[in-house]
Design a binder for these strands. Structure first.
Lengths: 158, 158
DNA sequence: ACTAAAGTGGATAATGATTATCCTTATTAA
DNA sequence: TTAATAAGGATAATCATTATCCACTTTAGT
């Protein structure tokens, strides 16, 4: 039971896109290069972020990706949801039914508890946004961040 | 990212063991039969519950499993931990390191947030115990539970 | 002492989800 | 028209989970 690495990668990808000036765009390959991720697979993850309306894609020469929302409107939870999907951490396999031979599909003893647990978990992920992470990173890793920003500006288009 | 089905099965297995009178024991095969689980594999899960000190095993003819602790001392969280292990839901893959070329292994931006989220999640699982679940099941599914209890008493040994 | 029924532990296979690659098509700037 | 890019489908590689099998140990009953 582990979160996909794609969630972490996507968070950093979006932080990188947040370094772009308005109207500029960064090709998928440049992003995956920075992340050290598999380019072809990361392209698929970028699609999920597009589908979730977190980023926009521009096709064609000088195409690429950029943020669709303001960084303060992108929560870590949104990214998690885009990548992992909305299935819950726990889903009853109906063991209780078999055990007690119930007819009505009344639920599992654990479902309520697990839903509550997951909901408090999610609420923590909803607190942090790209804006606040961007602040963090700027405050704590200053010199290195500027180098990264320079690289991004070099590779961006438009 | 889904919880193993073994967690749910183990919870019900322990609820079944909770129906045993003192000193009695239930063979692993009888348990997996009730759960509709693969007997050979579920035996492995039972071992994990033994290692976690939640249940005891008795080898030999008339052997089997029984609870090691009182039902009010077995939390859903303990069962989760026994089956899933103590690895956390999130573990940084070190992307930030690669991106910023940091030397010190200072952490990922997400680690703190994810740890907090997981910790609140766990705290919910720590609230519910086998005792409280057993109450629930007795209150809500009375006639069927008695049938199950009868089956258990028929299959138990010692 | 022998047998049968049970748990233990190791090796290994089957299944399924995640990650990765490849190829074809669509889009667009130059 | 060309070249760079995203989109999308098919498929392979990898890895975790689930499942099976077998040799071994323990113990009650005879």
């Amino acid at each position: 039971m582990q979160m996909k690495t794609g969630v972490e990668q996507s968070v950093y990808a979006i932080l990188i896109l947040n370094m772009l000036p308005d109207k500029a765009v960064l090709p998928g390959e440049a992003i995956s290069q920075q992340l050290g991720a598999s380019p072809t697979y990361f392209q698929k993850l970028l699609r999920k972020l597009v589908s979730a309306d977190l980023i926009t894609s521009v096709p064609g020469v000088k195409g690429g990706f950029k943020l669709r929302k303001k960084p303060e409107d992108i929560r870590v939870y949104d990214i998690y949801l885009a990548i992992e999907g909305q299935q819950s951490l726990y889903s009853s396999s109906g063991v209780l039914h078999g055990i007690l031979e119930l007819e009505d599909d009344s639920c599992c003893l654990l479902t309520n508890l697990m839903e509550e647990a997951e909901s408090t978990w999610q609420s923590v992920l909803k607190r942090e946004t790209i804006a606040s992470l961007y602040e963090d990173i700027n405050k704590n890793y200053q010199p290195k961040v500027q180098i990264l920003q320079a690289v991004v500006k070099e590779k961006m288009v438009l």
